[in-house]
Every structure is written in structure tokens, then in C-alpha cells.
């Protein structure tokens, strides 16, 4: 099923930052969001994931199809790697975390407490959560932050496999993952003309 976004407008802190966003994401395809800091990449991803309502426009996929990976990985420092991942697997009703541990190269760290992981290892654990979510559309917000070159390549492989299995990915990143098949969407084209959200029906009255 295609993931279609049409005429979407999103707001951050009461100010409309993006409007008229249109794109289609087919199964097996990846789309990279580009744009300078503050253009609204995170806001767009949060809106698509169902965490905040759009100002206007349609999103074809329900939030249940979307696995969202933000800046924060949702890890508990006092739990082990296995416990952290098993929790998210249970929440998503999936079984078996071994595959995810293997793919993200975390097997040797499985009994270590998350608080004792390095930043890059934590990030890998956060991304392993995507694999146990069992959801087809990945929304990735700067997934490669604090990953070294080898880990970036590892993760690119994971994404490529996901696409190969009919999944899709939408990512905001400055680093080239080396996914030749990924299309690029420049969000600067959808930058809103400074419409204030509070104005919605409120401000126009004074016009």
C-alpha cells in the first residue's frame, strides 16, 4: 500500500512551518528529507507518526503502520540491553529479539546495562527497536547521529533489507547513507509564509 501525504501543513510552537507538503512513498522505497535546521523536519515526522495533529491535509497511513525513531531512544539506563529491547518487542506484540540484536551487532552487549553503553551503542539499540516493532513504514529522525562509519554502513544495510522486504523509510538526515535508490525531498520548497497557527480563525477576524 502506498503511503500518500497530501496538502499537509504542520505547526511548531503555534507557528505553521510547512504547508502544501505532497509526496508518495511506495513499498520498498526510501525518501530522504532535506532542508536547513529549523525547516520543520522533526515536526513533520512527529505529525506523520500521529504525535501531533496536522493543521490541514491528509495522511493515508494510520499511525499503527509507522515506527518512529526520534532523537531520544526511549532507553532505561538501569535495564540491560536485552530487557530494553524485550520491553519494546512486548509492547508491539512481537517475539524474538535475537534477530534484531544480531543485525545491529549488539549480541556481545546483551547483558550490559544501557547506562553503560557508549552513545553510538545506545543509538544502535534505539534503532534495533525498529526491527522488533514489526511496522512497515520507518520514520527516522537523524538516525546516524553518534554512529561511526562502520555502524552507519551496518544501519544502511538494515534499511536496505527492510526496503527489500517491502517496507519503506522516510528519513531526515544530513549524512548520505549510501542508499542509491533513495529519492530526496527538499522541504525548503514547502516552507510556510509565516502563518501563525493561533491565527487560525482567530487572526483572520482582525484582517
Amino acid at each position: 500500500m502506498d503511503f500518500v501525504v497530501s496538502d499537509l501543513a504542520v505547526a511548531r510552537g503555534g507557528i505553521c512551518v510547512l504547508e502544501g507538503v505532497n509526496f508518495t512513498l511506495r513499498p520498498g522505497a526510501a525518501l530522504v528529507l532535506r532542508g536547513p535546521n529549523g525547516v520543520g523536519k522533526t515536526t513533520l515526522l512527529r505529525t506523520l507518526a500521529g504525535l501531533q495533529p496536522p493543521l490541514e491535509g491528509q495522511i493515508s497511513a494510520p499511525p499503527e503502520a509507522i515506527a518512529y525513531a526520534a532523537h531520544a531512544d526511549g532507553l532505561k539506563g538501569t535495564l540491560s540491553v536485552t530487557e530494553n529491547l524485550e520491553f519494546w518487542a512486548a509492547v508491539h506484540g512481537t517475539r524474538g529479539i535475537d534477530h534484531a540484536l544480531d543485525r545491529m551487532n549488539l549480541r556481545d552487549l546483551r547483558d550490559r546495562r544501557a547506562a553503560n553503553l557508549s552513545a553510538g551503542q545506545k543509538r544502535r539499540l534505539g534503532l534495533a527497536r525498529l526491527l522488533v516493532s514489526g511496522r512497515p513504514i520507518w520514520m527516522l529522525d537523524e538516525p546516524t547521529v553518534s554512529l561511526d562509519v562502520a555502524s552507519v554502513a551496518l544501519f544502511a544495510g538494515v534499511v536496505r533489507d527492510h526496503l527489500g522486504q517491502g517496507g519503506s523509510a522516510l528519513m531526515a538526515t544530513h549524512i548520505d547513507l549510501g542508499l542509491s535508490e533513495a529519492a530526496v525531498l527538499d522541504l525548503a520548497a514547502f516552507r510556510a509564509q509565516g502563518r501563525v497557527q493561533a491565527a487560525h480563525g482567530f487572526d483572520e477576524a482582525f484582517a
Binding site: 512527529r46 507518526a49 500521529g50 504525535l51 499511525p63 499503527e64 509507522i66 515506527a67 518512529y68 526520534a70 532523537h71 531520544a72 531512544d73 526511549g74 532507553l75 532505561k76 519494546w88 509492547v91 508491539h92 506484540g93 527497536r129
Partner: peptide, 14 residues
């Protein structure tokens, strides 16, 4: 849970 992002993830969980 809000600080470490778990709350966002729980809100999008099934």
C-alpha cells in the same frame, strides 16, 4: 518517560 523519549514511543505504540 517524557525525558528519555519513551512516552513518545508509547504514545505511538499499539
Amino acid at each position: 518517560d517524557h525525558e528519555d523519549g519513551s512516552l513518545d514511543l508509547l504514545a505511538t505504540a499499539p
